[in-house]
Design a protein around this nucleic acid. Sequence first.
DNA 1: AAGGCGAACAACCGCTCCACT
DNA 2: CAGTGGAGCGGTTGTTCGCCT
Length: 263
Amino acid sequence: MGRSPCCEKAHMNKGAWTKEEDDRLIAYIRAHGEGCWRSLPKAAGLLRCGKSCRLRWINYLRPDLKRGNFTEEEDELIIKLHSLLGNKWSLIAGRLPGRTDNEIKNYWNTHIRRKLLNRGIDPSTHRPINELPASTGEPVTNISFSSAAAMVSRVQHQEKKADNAEGFKIKLEEKNPAHQEQCPDLNLELRISPPHQTQYPQADQPMKSGGRNHLCFVCSLGLQNSKECSCNISGGRGSGASSSYDFLGLKTGVLDYRSLEMK
DNA sequence: AAGGCGAACAACCGCTCCACT
DNA sequence: CAGTGGAGCGGTTGTTCGCCT
């Protein structure tokens, strides 16, 4: 039994939005706020898919959007955030007021990629292009922190494909001089940290499986048995104070991945 | 002036996550 | 606990625009 489509596609408009459609959408959201996108088109008298309405509003019509060219500062910030987060456009957008994930994604693909390539930097790894990749099919044995976000998705993807993660050993660099070299002045007042203690599973509150906000970050890397694991019930969690938590050896880390989830 | 081409950007599509029942 | 639906995300495609020949 498949799920129903998000909208009746047969009688829906597609393609570029007209001024009238924009006006209708703006007027409706001004009057009623951002509610249920699925029912919004009908209520607003639009022959559009709810997803299309949401996208149009978020990426184009929202009053707080900053239209216009990206500044040099924004460029550099995007590059630094991308080196930390990978293609997490929504998270990157969260640190750039007035910019949308779609806008940043497009800007990255059209401008910044080329800019980095001209600098001799691989836009996906943020390493010099002539630097050979660490692996060509061999098990990954060493990954940089700068690829952490991409790594998480790779690990999660791998976990889905095969329960047996043997051979996938991760040696995280205690510090990443290369990365610090790339971003010597990066201080976004961010911090990579484990989930708050209140989110850790208690004896009578088993962790919700699959919940991305509840899984220990180390566990999400497939390192459940690691001493770094902060949700290891049987092994004890030590003091558990997040302020003293030495996540991945980055006690002084400044990136709080959770805090980036602003949207 | 017209056509080719690439860049830029808007929009769509498919998928995942998560709250709710 | 499983099923379902809404919302959001990231990749990709389609369209428009401007430059060049």
